[in-house]
């Protein structure tokens, strides 16, 4: 059994969260604090409420626990987890943006930004996903059309 170090995070409300170090270093900000030796007692995260912090920890845990493999099933599972994760009310979404921006979790930030962008455009994430799927199909049609075109020119 490998030795697993834990890290204590203290949030805005003074509540403490004990998490494994492997989970805690997912956010780059915390990773840098640990590297700089600021993590001896507990890491203060004054900008983050407990509701948001537990959501962030839930996200980091899921990403750490999912094996980093090329397996389609694992990837799809993680993707649907992330999709569900950002299906929050607008208030939570904006709290998450500020927290994620502070903690510097890039991957999830990208997804949240895209979600807000889709909201501004008036589309749901599902509709956008469908658009991207259609675009992938366009290419395969293009290949076919191109071949036919060249065939006809050959005559």
């Amino acid at each position: 059994m490998s030795y697993s170090k834990t890290i204590v995070l203290t949030n805005y409300d003074g509540e403490t969260f004990v998490v494994d170090e492997v989970v805690a270093v997912e956010p780059q900000t915390i990773e840098h604090m640990i590297e700089d030796g600021c993590a001896n007692t507990s890491i203060p995260l004054p900008n983050v409420t407990s509701k948001i912090l537990s959501k962030v920890i839930e996200h980091c845990k899921k990403h750490v626990e999912t094996p980093n493999s090329n397996e389609k099933a694992a990837k799809a599972d993680l993707k649907s987890f992330d999709f569900d994760f950002v299906k929050a009310d607008q208030g939570t979404l904006f709290d998450l943006i500020l927290a994620m921006n502070y903690l510097n979790i890039k991957e999830l930030l990208d997804l949240i930004y895209q979600t807000v962008a889709d909201m501004i455009k008036g589309k749901t994430p599902e509709e956008e996903e469908e658009m991207r799927r259609v675009n992938a199909w366009v290419f395969s049609c293009f290949v076919g059309v191109t071949c036919l075109y060249f065939k006809s020119k050959k005559m």
Binding site: I97, N101, Y113, Q114, V116, A117, D118, I120, K121
Partner: peptide, 12 residues
Amino acid sequence: PEDILSRILSLM
């Protein structure tokens, strides 16, 4: 913040 908004507006 402005930089977050510009990133969001860059995605559409």
